[in-house]
């Protein structure tokens, strides 16, 4: 379930943010961000302008925070950049490095820079990158696959992927999920930003939610195991508190996106709960549509967090 972001400073974290602040003014930036990632795939979710890219780049030492610090594999990002560079990989948002280079030679060059560089040919095959005359002649999806291949060329322990599935068609996304899951199984720690709920459900073990530069939720997939969820559509802005009072104890009820509601419950959601929802809708002069019961997903909780009124963020 959703919880207040916690920071476990005693853990041997792969990635650790310690009270990071980078204020651009007018409410933009990232504020007092602390978290620790030990293993697996963590998704950094947030609306446009929430500060995801700023946070990703700050963690990698590409932006200087006004206060706070970041550590990767126990080393300070800024002081040990050279040591960390050989153990990390990165996809930067909207960046196409060396557009005039050939894809294969670009990967081959990068491979030479790492002590444990992977073969360019192997990566070209794994990511199905065509060997064109230059990177600038690749399609958007092919460039994105090349960027992902480049992030993994140095056999990294930690990978930062900023919108890695942007521009990929469904088939390309599915292939990338496979490759990234395989890397995760081999122990590579990943921090990924995304807008796609599919990415969250397919890849993430954990989601960190950024809202207007504040870390507002830290949700683990493990916490979903015993939770049932009911989703439905109906008129927006209905009083969910009224519904909540009629539901079993420890249930939650919220409007995740306009007109889309999510009910979660630690106990089984059956016909009684559905009847309660229908009665509540009727009481408010509407009817529920697209009722669906199933296990609660990480993305549904992330969406719920993202839809929280920004005024709740102090």
């Amino acid at each position: 379930m959703s919880s207040t972001p916690a920071h476990d400073s005693s853990s041997s974290a792969a990635v650790e943010a310690l009270k990071i602040n980078l204020d651009y003014g007018a409410g933009h930036g990232i504020f007092d961000i602390s978290f620790a990632i030990g293993s697996g795939v963590t998704v950094l979710a947030g609306n446009n302008g929430a500060g995801k890219t700023t946070l990703m780049e700050t963690l990698q030492g590409l932006r200087n925070p006004q206060s706070g610090s970041a550590q990767i594999l126990g080393l300070d990002t800024f002081r040990h950049r050279a040591q960390l560079a050989v153990q990390t990989g990165s996809v930067l948002q909207g960046v196409t490095p060396y557009p005039t280079a050939k894809p294969r030679e670009f990967l081959a060059y990068l491979s030479k820079l790492y002590p444990t560089g992977r073969e360019a040919n192997e990566l070209m095959n794994t990511f199905q990158i065509p060997d064109r005359k230059s990177i600038k002649t690749l399609s958007g999806g092919e460039v994105q696959r090349l960027n992902c291949a480049a992030a993994l060329v140095g056999s990294p322990k930690v990978v930062f992927l900023d919108e890695p599935t942007a521009g990929l068609d469904p088939g390309g996304r599915a292939d990338l999920y496979g490759v990234l899951r395989e890397q995760a199984l081999q122990g590579v720690v990943m921090l990924i930003t995304t807008h796609l709920t599919e990415d969250i459900d397919q890849l993430a073990d954990r989601a960190l939610v950024l809202n207007h530069g504040h870390l507002t939720a830290d949700i683990s997939k493990k916490s979903l195991a015993s939770t049932d969820a009911l989703t439905f559509d109906c008129r927006t802005n209905l009083p969910t508190e009224q519904l909540l009072s009629a539901l079993p104890l420890e249930s939650t009820a919220r409007e995740t996106v306009k007109g889309h509601y999510l009910i979660t419950s630690p106990s089984h959601i059956g016909s009684e709960v559905i009847a309660t929802v229908e009665a509540w809708c009727a009481q408010n002069g509407t009817q529920p549509q697209n009722l669906s019961v199933g296990a609660e997903t990480l993305s549904s909780l992330v969406l719920a967090e993202l839809n929280r009124d920004s005024s709740q963020v102090s």
């Binding site: 590409l62 560079a85 990989g89 990165s90 930067l92 490095p97 140095g154």
Partner: peptide
């Protein structure tokens, strides 16, 4: 910027 993420 990208090269800033590599060992160079």
């Amino acid at each position: 910027l990208y090269m800033g993420t590599t060992p160079v």
